[in-house]
Design a protein around this nucleic acid. Sequence first.
DNA 1: TTGCCGATTACCT
DNA 2: GGTAATCGGCAAC
Length: 199
Amino acid sequence: MIQKLPPSFYNRSTKTVAKELLGKRLVRVTDQGVRLSGLIVEVEAYLGIKDKAAHTFGRRRTPRNEVMWGEGGIAYVYFIYGIHYCLNAVTRSHGQPEAVLIRALQCEEGLEVIRARRKVKNEIHYASGPGKLCQALGIDRSLNGISLQSDNLFIENTGLKIPTSRIVATSRIGVDYAGKAKDWPLRFYIKGNKAVSKF
DNA sequence: TTGCCGATTACCT
DNA sequence: GGTAATCGGCAAC
């Protein structure tokens, strides 16, 4: 039974949500009604107030990170390096500003549309990074703050269960500034999957 | 208002 | 391995 993940899925420990998002399917429906999708193969957990790598570290609350302070199950999309967007799923509940960064997908549906957007030949790299997957699925700032139960952006169950033995945990990418937190093993990916951003 | 720099990518040698 | 691209968030002034 394929179904959208409910808010109760997201309102839990961020590390648990991160690991369980592996093997789920991120779905984007275009304005023309075309389904673009891929299996989530790589994620990172951001643990809010106590995590120096998180946008909400030290209770920081700004217009950009406002949606992280709300309920779980909301999309947090931000713009980075003047070029790229990154997609997160907000976790936990109001006042606990944590999230999971979706870092890579193994694309499944809508490959014709995705191919036109991504100028790489190798299909495995259509969404093998957080900025790439947003470009592939057409995710930008306009989707910041929308529910992940929306008709045009959601995550659905696949029936796949990734066993612990196939999940690799490493330190997160691009957070060298984060002091001790840079070494926390909060990046999770499916062992051996070729769409993972870095091995 | 200024100025630094980022949860990245692609292309170069 | 090195770095340009490109802009807005954020904190300091």
